[in-house]
């Protein structure tokens, strides 16, 4: 009876595991292996070397700068928003609902909306600049990367910050109120209480949110594709461009493998930092 039950429950789990093996593990291994295979079917590094003149270095820099910039920006906003909502005495859930609505908006749509906002010449951001008396800015000028990166970070964070707000808010609700009360009696101001009580108590929640957002951030694809095309390239858009244009699909596997390696390194770092604390 017992043996029978064990085998039955295992049988129930197998379809999902087989599905994941067939559609994740096999394709990923296939991409990595084929990134090292040349047209003659032998081992080669040529697919990787071919990426260098196509802007590999810039793609890596862009991916890293925008990813880390975006998660840092999102962390700051999410901390601020979650603290404000946690302090409210009424209308908490209304404000939360309004703030998380962007989560449901498709990335493609947010890219279209921000392409209107960051339009040049003209556009909404520039109209606002003009109304307060500032000169217009070419927000997505591929020759001026810091401004492009900043615009992409702002556009990306609109849709992706809400999940971080949800995580940090859940963490803040778990901090005992007595800690704040006794700190206030001891004369600690709001900023000090935030730095000494809120942030240390949120550490594991911050870690989780950085892991979740960080890995997804390396994958941003639709947003740069629509806002800036292939210039500057991201590892994702470079992979897609190679896939749709290159003679050999194996070059796109090489670019994909680099993306995969970066994501794996990030997971390992966060895991080490998180694990060290426990």
């Amino acid at each position: 009876m017992r043996l029978q039950r064990v085998s039955l429950t295992t049988l129930l789990i197998i379809p999902a595991l087989a599905y994941v093996a067939a559609l994740v593990i096999y394709p990923a291994a296939y991409a990595v292996v084929h990134s090292f295979i040349g047209p003659n079917g032998r081992f080669t590094l040529a697919n990787y070397e071919a990426l260098v003149p196509l802007g590999l270095k810039l793609a890596i820099i862009t991916t890293l700068v925008v990813s880390f910039g975006a998660i840092f920006f999102q962390l700051l906003i999410a901390l601020a928003v979650a603290s404000v909502i946690a302090k409210l005495t009424r209308a908490r859930s209304t404000l939360m609902t309004l703030v998380i609505i962007p989560m449901g908006v498709a990335t493609v749509v947010s890219a279209v909306l921000f392409s209107f906002i960051f339009q040049y010449p003209g556009g909404i951001a520039n109209e606002i600049m003009r109304s307060i008396g500032l000169a217009p800015v070419y927000w997505l000028n591929p020759k001026h990367l810091p401004i492009v990166y900043m615009s992409l970070i702002i556009a990306d964070s609109w849709k992706t910050t809400p999940i971080m707000i949800l995580i940090l808010y859940a963490g803040m609700l778990r901090i005992p109120q007595e800690l704040y009360e006794s700190a206030a009696i001891d004369g600690a101001g709001p900023l000090r209480r935030f730095a000494r009580i809120t942030v240390p108590n949120l550490r594991s929640f911050i870690g989780i949110s950085l892991l979740i957002r960080g890995v997804s951030e390396f994958n941003i694809f639709a947003l740069p594709l629509i806002l800036v095309g292939y210039n500057p390239p991201f590892l994702t858009t470079l992979t897609y461009e190679l896939y749709s244009s290159a003679i050999t699909v194996n070059e796109s596997y090489a670019s994909a493998t680099i993306l995969l390696a970066l994501a794996a390194i990030l997971i390992a770092i966060v895991y080490r930092v998180q694990g060290g604390r426990r």
Binding site: V24, V215, Y240, Y253, L260
Partner: peptide, 13 residues
């Protein structure tokens, strides 16, 4: 497995 970049597996798929 969900952390796998979609574009990496989408091309072989």
């Amino acid at each position: 497995t969900n952390l796998m970049p979609s574009i990496v597996i989408a091309i072989p798929i």
